[in-house]
Each structure stands twice: as C-alpha cells, then as structure tokens.
Design a protein around this nucleic acid. Structure first.
Lengths: 186, 186
DNA sequence: TGGGTCATGTAACCTGTTACATGATTAG
DNA sequence: CTAATCATGTAACAGGTTACATGACCCA
C-alpha cells in the first residue's frame, strides 16, 4: 500500500525521499501513517522492482540528494494498482477495539474518557481550521484541476469523518448518562 | 492490539482458539481484521507472557480442545491497556490512498468506480439489516447491561460510519459530474 | 549555544498476510 | 455424496514500528 502511495507521488514528478516524507505529512498521512524509515526502505524496493531510478546529486553545505524518477514500468504498476479489483471497504480502528471492552471500567471513568475524546476531536478540527492542508503549496505539482479534485475529496472525507465521530461521541455520552441515572434511580 | 482484543474476550470466560475466532467474526472483525493463524499464534504469546493458562480437553468424535483461561496478570494487563494514555485517533484507509491518486484515470472511469462503491456500501447496509450482529447470541457471555452498552456503541459507530461513507460518495459523484459538464461546456 | 532544517539511512523487532495441512462427524 | 462444522496449527513472507546514527548549516 505504502509503496504505491510513494509511486503515486513520484508520478507527479521526480523527488527525493526527504521530499516524499514532507509531502506525505501534508496529505496522505491523514489516512495512512508512515515512518520515515519505512519510506526510505520502500524506496529501495521500488528501485529494485525497476519502478524508479535514482540519481545522486551532490550539494554544498547540505547532504547529497538522491533524486528518484518513476519509470515506465512504475507508471504501469501504479495504473495496475489503481484499477485492480479489490475490496477496500476496510475499517481499522484501534479506538473501537478499546471501547468494545470499556465495560470493564466504571461508567464515570468512561464518561470522563469520552469527554477527553471530544476535546481531542475538537482540537483536531481547530487545527484543521487554522492550519488547513495547504493544497496551494503543491500547486506546481498538481496543477490540473481534474487531479486536484481527488485530493480535495479526501480532505472532505476527513472533515465528514471528524464530524461523524463527534456526533457519535456525543450520542455515547448521552447513553451513558442515561444508564447511570437509571441505575442510581432504583 | 490483537493480543489485547483476545485478552478481552478471554476475560468474559475461558474459551478455545476456535471460540475466539468465531466471536471475533461476529464482533471485533467490523473494525479489526484478524486471520485465524494470527489468533492461534498470539494465543501462544499470551500464554508465554503468563496472561493465560491452557488445558487440553480430549473429546470423542471431535479434535481435542485447548481451553484458555485468563490469569490475574492477564487481567492486570487488560486493565493497563484499557487505561493507558495513547492517541487512538488514527484512521487508516486504503480506499483514500487510492482515491487520492485517482486523477490519473479518466473522469468517466472514476464516476463508474464511485458508483460501484455506492453499491458495495448498500450491500453492506442490507446485510447488516437482514443479518445484524447478534448480541443475543452472546448473552451468556455479556449479561451485564452495563457491559453490553459498549458493544452496542461500537455497532452504532459502524452504522454511522457507513451512512457518512454513502453521503460522501454521493457528494463526490455530484462534484465529478459538475466538473465533467463544465469541461464539456467549453 | 541550542534548536530547527536538510538529508540520509540501518538493525532489530513486532504484527499481519498467504498458503498449506489434517481429519472425523454431521446435516442436507 | 458433498459441504459445513469442529479444531488445531506451521512456515514463509510482507509490512509496520522503534530506536539509533550522522553531520553541517542557519537563525535567534
């Protein structure tokens, strides 16, 4: 998955591992986390598979750069991946895994926990509001409005997800409060 | 993560690897996928860590059973995991990874693709409607209404997620149609 | 003089996936 | 007769995480 994400970025233009790490942070990281070390390692695999070539460019005052360029075979692989038939409707949520078992703790602990999650969610929204993913920054990379649409759609997904998440958290808190009062009312 | 999910199930009562595989399918699998082989392997690790003990029970006409029982140290580990402070607000979506790069394909291919996703989403909703996750089936396991709430909340999350997903897909299709007509209108 | 940016990675480990293997019983 | 259920895994590989390492330049 990550290899194809890197390939997709390389398809916009030749760049270094360092560039990829940075662009990743501003875009794909919202729905796929990647370690720097993994990016450098996968870049080696990409080269080994013949999907990209590299060229070392010396610089003065700065470390050498290694610029990767996608090959024809890399473009084919990217297209193959994009059009392959696979079930991607997969949701992996460590949060739900924990909440499933949260009945082990007291209802007060849980209400407190959910309120903490609401705060985190708000902080995320606020950060998105004051410092939104800067698509302009990469205008040189993705200048085609047809291509930019898809980036925009993933950003919208993130926003809708966040909203749904908050609604769900609030509903859960209401349900816990109810159960709490029912039990104390007996 | 999976190890702690298994530990959580074991905490409801002693059971075999086979039982865990089945309960997993009806519950946790909606937000965490696990291979049978991984469950059996992690069960070995859980035993090695002293979080559970096992007892082999011969049966006739059927293979031997290996019943796992959580230990005090296992319960402590479960509680530690539940209360640990960690950022779980993580979204991993292979779908978004692909959509981000979908500008490489034609707008007609993309509209078709999104319509396929809508159908898949509807099929999922329909399956949930005619064959909902059967919490009753495990009433013997989780009989405390306080504990059952948390299971219910994760199911609700799945439903809200699915709804948001459909809304997003529909919005995307509208945006693509618009862009398509704008471009052909020039 | 201390932290941020630029720029590269390696090593060890942990977690998840795919493919394979066995074999009796029971329900349709 | 065939498919599902019961019940256990192993081996190899792929992918993700954590910790560590280097070093110059620039700005405050």
């Amino acid at each position: 998955m990550l290899k194809h994400g890197i390939l997709g970025l390389l398809n916009y233009g030749s760049m270094t591992g360092y560039d990829i790490v940075n662009i990743f942070k501003d875009s794909l990281s919202y729905f796929w986390h990647a370690q720097t070390s993994q990016i450098y390692r996968d870049l080696q695999t990409i080269k080994k598979n013949g999907w990209a070539t590299d060229e070392t460019v010396p610089q003065d005052g700065k470390p050498d750069k290694k610029i990767f360029t996608i090959t024809e075979s890399g473009r084919e692989e990217l297209k193959r991946w994009l059009t392959e038939d696979s079930v991607e409707f997969e949701l992996r949520s460590p949060l739900m895994m924990k909440i499933f078992f949260r009945g082990e703790l007291s209802i007060d602990e849980n209400i407190e926990y959910f309120e903490k999650l609401v705060k985190e969610n708000n902080a995320f929204d606020y950060k998105m509001y004051i410092d939104p993913p800067d698509t302009e920054k990469y205008a040189g990379l993705i200048n085609d409005p047809m291509k930019a649409l898809y980036w925009k759609m993933t950003v919208e997904y993130g926003m809708m997800y966040s909203k749904m998440h908050r609604l769900w958290l609030e509903k859960c808190i209401r349900q816990m409060e109810e159960l709490k009062h029912e039990n104390s009312g007996n």
